[in-house]
Design a protein around this nucleic acid. Structure first.
Ligand SMILES: [Zn+2]
Length: 413
DNA sequence: CGTGCCGGGGC
DNA sequence: GCCCCGGCACG
């Protein structure tokens, strides 16, 4: 426990980066309650859920969440090659969805589907039709609470002003909603293609955006994005390891790009329309580079060197100059290396954990991703820092970093 | 609530 | 660049 800070003190004016990564934006409510109702579902129903998600083209996140659930739930450790792949394929193609006509024997499926969609849209502010409270309640009670409901779609949907959920079909059962509600017809036909005969589904193409921090690469196919994530971020040349095969699913999301490149893009109008992979509506940063960020190679190298390579990733790259060159690399590497090992649990373990509370939703995945790839803060070292050692009254004896409320560099963790 | 420190701002 | 501080996560 000898703090060789007399050595370190020389370089006291620079702080050591260690791991600093993306911001700690706490998004969405964490949904930790399990959903017993859904757990019992069969694969058939899940596929249907995926289909529903496909139809809801503007609900990429929801779709992602559903798919995630399916893969988590259905993924036995081994022999999972057939069913998930087919699942993801059906996702990618996303064309062969039911026709606009329905045969009368699909009623069960319709009801289930309606339940799904209703539950998914339950946060909709426009859900004011008292129609079919049964379905809504039934589907909601699997979540266990309103809290999970709010968190469910919280990632991408809150802004999009989700459509009124009621009419999956107003076939014959209950014309509960007055048909003159047609204000949101567009949204309706974006969500479901039944209500409107002419749908512009053709003009929407799905793309998949890498959620890895500061990457934002967009690819048009699931396999592409998966491969990108595997190779670039997870540093995994081989195709699938047995357990963490679907790990890449946490790192991409489905986005929609419109054929006509205008949609909602800010006054950019520059070089956007050229490549088909460039997202017309990337929400976060319009200037996100299509190529992996320069931090990727180093990340890859680092994560490769790590024994459990896949998920954990910390970037030893200085962003601020006062946090630059790690002198510990030469000497005190042991001291610095020890905490790094305890960063987070290896991804396989966490993946299993996510199986345990695999509930519904993206926010779980997002949080998982955050905790994995973007460890919000450096690990809290148990060592006393200058503040505690010298006290606030002797602040002038603190190291510069502590004085600046930065990461202490005199007493390393 | 104290502590560590990230992000951001002033100069 | 240096320096400070609001505010947040964590224990
Ligand atoms: Zn210090």
């Amino acid at each position: 426990m000898l703090h060789s800070w007399c050595f370190l003190r020389r370089s006291e004016t620079h702080m050591i980066p260690k791991a600093r990564l993306g911001k700690r934006s706490p998004l969405g409510a964490l949904v930790t309650s399990t959903c017993p109702g859904i757990n019992l579902e069969t694969g058939e129903t899940v596929v249907m859920m995926v289909a529903a998600g496909q139809q809801a083209t503007s609900r990429a996140d929801g779709h992602l969440g559903l798919k995630m659930y399916f893969q988590c739930g259905g993924a036995g450790e081994s022999s999972v090659d057939s069913s998930p792949s087919s699942c993801s394929r059906s996702v990618s193609s996303s064309i062969d969805v039911p026709k606009s006509q329905r045969s009368p024997h699909e009623v069960d499926m319709n009801e289930l589907m309606a339940a799904m969609v209703l539950s998914s849209l339950s946060c909709s502010p426009l859900l004011h039709s008292p129609a079919q409270p049964d379905l809504t309640a039934a589907s909601m009670e699997c979540g266990g609470g309103e809290l999970s409901d709010s968190g469910y779609w919280s990632v991408g949907h809150a802004h999009r002003s989700p459509a009124p959920s009621p009419p999956i079909k107003e076939s014959d059962a209950s014309p509960a909603t007055p048909p003159d509600e047609g204000v949101d017809m567009e949204l309706d036909q974006v969500l479901f293609d039944e209500p409107a005969p002419r749908k512009r589904r053709n003009s929407v193409k799905v793309a998949y955006r890498c959620l890895w921090p500061s990457c934002g690469k967009v690819l048009t196919s699931v396999v592409g994005i998966k491969r990108h994530i595997r190779t670039t971020h997870l540093c995994r040349g081989g195709e699938h390891e047995r357990c963490s095969r679907s790990e890449e699913d946490f790192y991409y999301t489905e986005i929609n790009q419109w054929e006509h490149p205008q949609q909602r893009s800010p006054p950019h109008s520059g070089h956007s329309g050229s490549s088909p992979a460039s997202p017309a509506s990337s929400p976060s940063s319009p200037s996100s580079p299509p190529t992996p960020s320069p931090s990727s190679p180093s990340c890859a190298a680092l994560s490769c060197s790590a024994p459990s390579s896949s998920g954990s990733f910390w970037q030893v790259q200085s962003e601020h100059s006062y946090q630059a060159p790690p002198p510990s690399q030469h000497v005190v590497s042991a001291a610095a290396a020890t905490p790094s090992c305890r960063w987070t649990a290896p991804p396989t373990t966490c993946h299993k954990q996510s199986l345990s509370f695999r509930v519904r939703s993206v926010s779980v995945g997002e949080q998982w991703l955050q905790h994995q790839s973007a460890p919000s803060r450096r690990i809290r070292g148990e060592a006393k820092k200058c503040r505690k050692v010298y006290g606030i009254e002797h602040r002038d004896q603190w190291c510069t970093a502590c004085r600046w409320k930065k990461a202490c560099q005199r007493f390393l963790d």
